[in-house]
Amino acid sequence: MAQPAIRTQGLRVDLGAGPILHGIDLTVPGGEAVALLGANGSGKSTLVKALMGIVPIASGRAEIYGADVAASRRLVPWSRVGYVPQRVGSTAGVPATALEVVASGLLANRRLRPGRAARQRSLAALEQVGLLERARESVQVFSGGQQQRVLIARALVRRPDLLILDEPLAGIDKASKEALAGILATLRAQGTTLLVVLHELGELAGLIERAVVLRHGSVLHDGPPPPAAPGHDHPGHDHLHAHEDRPPGHTVPDLSSEW
């Protein structure tokens, strides 16, 4: 049987004073589309970073395609994994074009140079996210949403079997969200495994078949996507239950957009 894309057993991560994550048992078989949900500070990003080997693992195991990300880091097939980090303000001091940033996504543990077809592949990835015309401009002058799309292209250029996205919908406009949903649907149809950190399913609702909800650093729910909490659901959604005892005209305020 094929190795699962992701498997953790009793994963524990300590940062600073206490455990950020503890007792995380998670298996994601190849081809699944999984959302990682939870409030701010519940440990979603830390779990993803532990899987990527960015934060140290205190105890337990985390495996990518059967290889331990801590003990046998060099054996992990990193070229099969695409990672889209949570966008933070650009910290680099030297200008870099979108093309240069995306081409860096072609590197992996056994590849320190991007290879021959790097240019075409990078341009194709930029075309996928709709930034082909701006390939030769510095990402420093890009808007937040455009920078986010560059980071997505940098992961797509690897042609990953496993794509991990940390808050890809944060701070981008509706058209870009729908475009991203379209890209992910295509990848999903091609058999790409998806792990997406989200606050709410939003535009990706049709795509996600399984949701893992974290609270206080452990798994609260693992199964079909749960309905959104009141006030966090979509403004136009259908109520499946009646509200007879509510005064007419009372509506739940929508606090979800961008927050």
Binding site: K49, M52, G53, I54, R73, V76, W78, S79, V81, Y83, P85, A92, A96, V101, S104, G105, L107, A108, N109, R110, L112, R154, R158
Partner: peptide
Amino acid sequence: HDEEFARAAGL
């Protein structure tokens, strides 16, 4: 450019 990404890329 992005040390965390470089690590996640396997470099």
